[in-house]
């Protein structure tokens, strides 16, 4: 399920609908994949500690922690803080 939102406003959870932003918690960078077994020390350290810091449109995990508990992927502009599409996260 997907919900679109433009402009400032409450976060729209795909399942619960518009909710106050305080119900959601940041969950990390969905583009970061857990390295498989046998990866180098450097790969694991990068997984732990290195992150991109994009200026502008970015994707991030949001958890609807004080709501349905679903893990979601949200598009957010890191400069304007405007949130775009919010989708259910999948493995």
């Amino acid at each position: 399920m997907t919900r679109d939102q433009t402009g400032p406003g409450p976060m729209t959870c795909p399942f619960c609908g518009p909710r106050d932003a305080s119900e959601f918690r940041y969950g990390g960078d969905p583009s970061v994949a857990r390295p498989g077994p046998g990866c180098s020390d450097a790969d694991w350290a990068a997984y732990l500690y290195l992150r991109d810091s994009p200026r502008g449109p970015a994707r991030e995990y949001r958890v609807h922690a004080q709501g349905c508990g679903q893990w979601l992927v949200a598009e957010r502009d890191t400069v304007t803080h405007l949130v775009g599409t919010i989708t259910e996260a999948t493995p």
Binding site: G27, R34, Y61, V63, A65, G69, Q70, W71, A89, T90, P91
Partner: peptide
């Protein structure tokens, strides 16, 4: 619970 749900929803299905 939060950690278990994170792995459930993003890794195990």
């Amino acid at each position: 619970v939060a950690s278990a749900e994170e792995w459930r929803q993003t890794r195990f299905g």
